[in-house]
């Protein structure tokens, strides 16, 4: 039955202001370009002066079922252009408020990399909060816009991921997740509960029949 479902279209909004120094994100982004049903947008490439085209971005949102922000975590939040993007694109009467239902029912998630180790992101660690807790502004934004927020696809300790040889596995997981999302094989209920969606990715994905 799963194979009969309509393919979900994924919009990947990538925000990285220093791509020439990127060790993880750029590879994830390039890998996503090759996945079917994924539209990739490099925001800093398209809007180098932050002059975001609101109409164009809103139209893109309307045409997709899954919205992903991909970024390296900057001060527990997104790089500046993604904040600009939210401030400009998620307009009254488009994303919220009277008649603002353009995003209703769409799935929203963050794919991000964090410099600190997973143990740093907890009440006892030096970051004091879990990643999921730190992403609450985004979670609430998604809720406010009637979207379904699911746990982030996160890589901790990203500064040394290449040296520790974590990249290959992470890219494989990433492709698996994107495919599962477009084929509607991801268990969204469970995915909404976790701290990060790639804690145990295989358990969340149904095999195709």
């Amino acid at each position: 039955m799963a194979a009969m479902l309509k393919k979900q279209k994924i919009l990947l909004l990538f925000a990285h202001p220093a791509q020439e120094r990127s060790e993880v994100n750029i590879h994830l982004y390039n890998a996503a370009k090759k996945v079917e049903h994924v539209t990739t947008v490099d925001l800093y490439h398209e809007y180098p002066a932050h002059h975001i085209d609101v109409d164009k971005e809103q139209q893109r949102l309307r045409e997709h079922d899954v919205i992903i922000f991909q970024f390296p975590l900057y001060w527990y939040s997104t790089p500046a252009i993604l904040k600009d993007w939210q401030d400009l694109v998620l307009e009254y009467q488009f994303a919220y408020g009277k008649g603002g239902t353009a995003l209703k029912g769409k799935i929203f998630l963050c794919a991000l990399t964090a410099g600190g180790s997973e143990s740093a992101y907890c009440s006892g660690g030096y970051n004091h909060y879990t990643l999921r807790e730190l992403l609450r502004p985004l979670e609430q934004t998604a809720n406010f816009c009637h979207m379904r927020f699911i746990a982030p696809f996160a890589l901790f300790g990203a500064r040394t991921a290449v040296e520790e040889d974590l990249l290959t596995q992470h890219i494989e997981d990433w492709k698996k997740l994107l495919n599962a999302l477009s084929e509607q094989r991801l268990d969204l209920e469970q995915a909404a509960q976790l701290t990060r969606v790639n804690e145990n990715l295989d358990a969340l994905i149904q095999e195709t029949v």
Binding site: I52, D87, L88, E91, Y92, Q93, G97, K98
Partner: peptide, 23 residues
Amino acid sequence: RDAGHSRSERGWTPPPKQYQGEL
């Protein structure tokens, strides 16, 4: 524009004052 804002002001526009009632 329809929402009552000029295009140049479209960015960073707050919702209308009565918007809380609509939520």
